[in-house]
């Protein structure tokens, strides 16, 4: 294939890509090319706004009664959960006052959850997740260890007390379920954000808790809305210290 033909094919792929019409494997290859090809990025920048506008062509329609309240009930539960973790736990970019944070957590997270997490942590293998590599200036990557999902991979990227989980190859948690993050400091465990994954099994979530001084970060499957205490054995963990 000549360079000209190859270029034409890539430009046609750009149209299919902005319409979400490339199969997953072709989309992945296209995205790799996109990262290296400025002309292709320009073509995508030209066509994507048009594809985005197509959504407006669908007629608006009144949603079924109750849908909004069902969604808002989950949202409110999650908001309450985060609020219960302390007012400063709602902000990713602000480190909470530690004394106040610990005091609240010790009241909120009772002892019964510790055995569940301890069992899960043992099953996963505490101590496997150690610092693997460094990324940005102050970023540290901590590999995530999964119990049973051999396809799943992930890292917890920490930066000055803040942290973000990036995961790939993870199966969806199932209908009405979410993944929830837990931060363990000493024997205390704090509930953190919930998340799901896309059809490629990719997901990322910024943690709301400060991870400075944390021993472990764990992930469990919980009902929509998240839980105050883990209700299932963790499926993954990473060790910070």
């Amino acid at each position: 294939m000549s360079d000209r033909d190859r270029n034409e094919e890539l430009m046609a792929d750009a149209a299919a890509w902005v319409l979400n019409a490339l199969p997953d494997d072709e989309a992945a290859a296209f995205e790799a090319e996109l990262a290296e090809n400025a002309a292709l990025r320009e073509e995508v920048a030209r066509l994507r706004p048009v594809a985005d506008l197509l959504a407006l062509a669908a007629p608006s329609e009144d949603p079924p009664p109750g849908l909004q309240s069902r969604i808002m009930a989950i949202v409110q539960r999650e908001a309450d959960l985060l609020s219960a973790a302390g007012p400063d736990a709602d902000r990713v970019d602000v480190r909470p006052p530690k004394a106040q944070h610990r005091g609240r957590l010790s009241r909120i997270f009772a002892k019964p959850l510790i055995p569940i997490l301890a069992t899960g942590a043992l099953a996963i293998g505490i101590g496997i997740g150690i610092v693997a590599s460094t990324g940005g200036t102050n970023d540290v990557n901590h590999p995530v260890t999964f119990v049973a999902d051999s396809q799943a991979r992930g890292d917890l990227i920490t930066h000055d007390g803040t942290a973000e989980l990036k995961l790939t190859g993870l199966k969806p948690p199932g209908a009405g379920r979410v993944y929830q993050v837990w931060v363990m400091k000493g024997n205390k465990v704090s509930p953190d954000n919930v998340f799901t994954v896309n059809r490629s099994g990719q997901g990322s979530v910024a943690l709301r808790n400060d991870v400075d001084g944390a021993k472990q970060v764990l992930i469990s499957v919980e009902p929509d809305g998240g839980s105050q205490q883990p209700t299932t054995t963790p499926i993954a963990s990473t060790t910070l210290s």
């Binding site: 989950i74 799901t196 997901g203 910024a206 929509d224």
Partner: peptide
């Protein structure tokens, strides 16, 4: 459509 909307809006809420 309800399932899709719930999934999409919760994803937005969860800041994924």
């Amino acid at each position: 459509a309800e399932d899709v909307i719930q999934d999409a809006l919760l994803s937005l809420w969860r800041a994924n």
